[in-house]
């Protein structure tokens, strides 16, 4: 009986694949895609502002609400933050990835790898918490600035209108630094993977043909590293777009998309608007993933 079943599996690979795929597809398809569909449906409902009840007639009114100046502000602020965080992560990640891919050997290579993996997998909340300690007014950063006689620079920065605040832990600068810190490893790994695929002979050829090291970097290395950067940016961009905890704990009172989603569905009880807000990062990421696929970024994942 088992034997016959086993033979069937071998003779009919398609059946085997169908059997293998059924449980995960049922789980992900029903639970996850079902949930996303429910979310999409909710975004076309609207809320009756007098009764607070959800009205289940399909309408675009909730999406129109997104275009109100205050909501548009939230979306713009989040996208700008995500773009800046992605850019900064790429700049900081590149030397680490380059050193790990090209120069680190043996023991050092392992050390670099663990050096990126450990912060990546350390608790997200602990990482955020550690920055609350660092950026606090009485914390180590203020102390360091005073010791180095740089307190004037810190205070000057805090006095600036948009990026400043009472202390770094309640400023947009603080939010930015923490985002970069928390998502940086997600950028390093794919960039390193892309750089490891660059054959050394290609760089030597560039040098032999008369390129200065900087020219080689600019015209040979960076273009070849781009798929890795794009792959990494999928994470940094998406994670920043949807995060509501970091700006809530470290940052000013200006809100981000994730916070808007959380508040609308929780305190405000306006699930349709929360759903519509949640569609914004989905649409942005869909466009982003589509563009990334064209760039061949998935091979670097």
């Amino acid at each position: 009986m088992m034997r016959a079943f086993s033979d069937t599996l071998w003779r009919r690979p398609r059946l085997t694949i169908a059997l293998l795929l059924a449980p995960p597809l049922i789980w992900l398809g029903v639970v996850y895609l079902g949930a996303l569909a429910a979310l999409l449906a909710q975004s076309f409902f609207s809320i009756d502002h007098f009764t607070g009840q959800v009205n289940r007639d399909l309408t675009l009114a909730t999406y129109a609400e997104l275009l109100r100046a205050s909501n548009l502000d939230i979306i713009l602020r989040t996208v700008t933050m995500a773009a800046l965080v992605t850019l900064a992560s790429a700049v900081i990640a590149f030397p680490i990835a380059w050193y790990a891919a090209r120069h680190a050997r043996g023991r050092w290579k392992a050390l670099f790898y663990l050096g990126v993996m450990m912060p990546l997998w350390s608790s997200y909340l602990v990482k955020v918490y550690s920055w609350k300690l660092i950026l606090a007014r009485e914390g180590i950063l203020t102390w360091g600035a005073e010791k180095l006689h740089l307190a004037w620079a810190l205070n000057g920065w805090l006095a600036l209108p948009v990026v400043g605040g009472n202390s770094l832990s309640v400023s947009a600068t603080g939010t930015f630094v923490v985002f970069v810190y928390v998502w940086l490893p997600y950028m390093i790994l794919p960039v390193q993977a892309a750089l490891e695929r660059v054959p050394p002979s290609m760089l030597e050829a560039s040098g032999d043909l008369g390129a200065k090291p900087f020219q080689t970097l600019r015209h040979v290395l960076l273009p070849l590293a781009m798929p890795g950067v794009v792959a990494g940016s999928i994470f940094t961009f998406s994670l920043t777009l949807g995060d509501y905890i970091i700006p809530g704990i470290i940052g000013s009172s200006r809100r981000f998309i994730g916070q808007a989603v959380y508040e609308q569905q929780g305190v405000a009880g306006n699930t349709p608007l929360a759903a519509a807000f949640a569609m914004v990062p989905i649409l942005i990421m869909a466009a982003y993933l589509w563009a990334a696929k064209k760039q061949g970024a998935f091979n670097a994942l």
């Binding site: 949930a35 979310l39 994670l239 959380y262």
Partner: peptide
């Protein structure tokens, strides 16, 4: 499509996954 479906829950922001599950 299958590989995309598997990656989707972490490629999309956590807040989306969260609110989607909650609405279900």
């Amino acid at each position: 499509t299958v590989s995309l479906l598997v990656i989707l829950p972490i490629a999309l922001p956590g807040v989306v996954t969260g609110i989607a599950l909650r609405s279900v």
